[in-house]
């Protein structure tokens, strides 16, 4: 498959293709990515504001930094699917900045998310971030504990994958991101240990662990073998504005090459009516409260039965999963 061809086609959302409005800028592949840059810029600003300016060490900025840290990890996810900048060098440098924000090398996402998680356990290899890794009866404990288990599994898997990757400069890029992220954090530690621990590292870890928890939130109880019912979607409008459309998870799994700005539209076009309606949650907050706070047991898996299954079975042209996996590998190699 022609990787370049795939990218060009997918960069242009159908809604904007109808008009003649340009979607790119001189710097970015997509105008909508200015929001992602804004998120990261604001996040790094809040971190350094708290570090250098004591009045900023207040509850509002601290909570904001934690929230932005999670969004920084969302940007890592998006950026590793589709590089934001037209310049490959800028994309690589931006990964370093993102890595500092999350205190883990952003390029880990290529193996852990793009290549493994997107294909669940299709080829018999378990997803490193599978919800099945946690099994407490009280589901809230699973949510809290999840990163403790899947974090080590993920980084061990990435390390193994890096031994066999044919992406020529992956290892050097991965090393550079670690040196930048841990080096900069280390320097901050040297100058002011406690401020760094409380106001830099705690937000960093909140985001890094939060993005791992999303795997549990978006896939627990779903049918991973299904083409449509493998993911839970959060379809609130404001939520998706802030989350750069990462609430639309089914379409993201099925068509990983789509730019995040078109996911809402494509979700309506392709997923609504094909997925079990119970997997379209209007609000993540309500879902979290209902699932993890107001109940103690793990919810039963969602499986459409009988007529319902029939209703959702009507098809749409989706490439086989093996083919989609190969595309993802080729994209990773080309990025």
């Amino acid at each position: 498959m022609d990787v370049e061809g795939v990218e060009k086609k997918d960069l242009i959302p159908s809604s904007t293709m109808k008009s003649s409005k340009r979607v790119d800028t001189w710097l970015l592949h997509h105008r909508a990515d200015r929001r992602q840059l804004g998120i990261v810029g604001l996040y790094i600003t809040t971190l350094f504001a708290m570090y250098f300016w004591p009045p900023a060490r207040n509850p509002i900025v601290f909570v904001l930094a934690c929230a932005l840290s999670f969004l920084n990890a969302v940007v890592i996810h998006n950026h590793l699917h589709k590089g934001i900048f037209k310049s490959k060098t800028l994309n690589r440098l931006f990964r370093c900045v993102l890595s500092f924000g999350a205190l883990y090398p952003a390029s880990a996402n290529i193996a852990s998310h793009n290549l493994v998680h997107h294909h669940f356990d299709d080829d018999g290899q378990p997803d490193w971030a599978s919800p099945s890794h946690v099994s407490f009866r009280w589901h809230l404990l699973n949510l809290i504990h999840f990163p403790n288990v899947v974090g080590p599994y993920t980084f061990r898997g990435v390390r193994r994958w890096s031994l066999t990757t044919r992406q020529a400069d992956f290892r050097s890029q991965y090393l550079m991101e670690q040196v930048f992220a841990f080096g900069l954090t280390g320097i901050l530690f040297i100058f002011d240990f406690w401020t760094t621990l409380f106001f830099i590292v705690m937000p960093q870890l909140w985001g890094a662990r939060g993005i791992l928890r999303i795997n549990l939130i978006q896939h627990d109880g779903c049918d991973l073998e299904s083409e449509w019912n493998h993911s839970r979607n959060f379809v609130g409008r404001w939520f998706n504005w802030i989350m750069c459309n990462n609430g639309y998870h089914t379409i993201h799994h099925n068509r990983a090459g789509l730019h995040c700005s078109v996911l809402a539209e494509k979700h309506k076009e392709e997923c609504v009516g094909r997925i079990d309606p119970r997997l379209d949650e209007p609000s993540m907050l309500l879902y979290l409260l209902r699932t993890f706070v107001f109940r103690f047991s793990r919810p039963k898996p969602i499986r459409p039965k009988g007529e319902v299954a029939q209703k959702f079975a009507h098809g749409i042209e989706l490439a086989p999963r093996e083919e989609r996996r190969l595309d993802a590998e080729l994209e990773a190699l080309a990025e």
């Binding site: 207040n58 509850p59 621990l197 409380f198 106001f199 705690m202």
Partner: peptide
């Protein structure tokens, strides 16, 4: 704005 005391942050950590 009320600054977060380091003791409280320590308890949180």
């Amino acid at each position: 704005m009320w600054q977060l005391p380091y003791e409280l942050m320590g308890v949180l950590a």
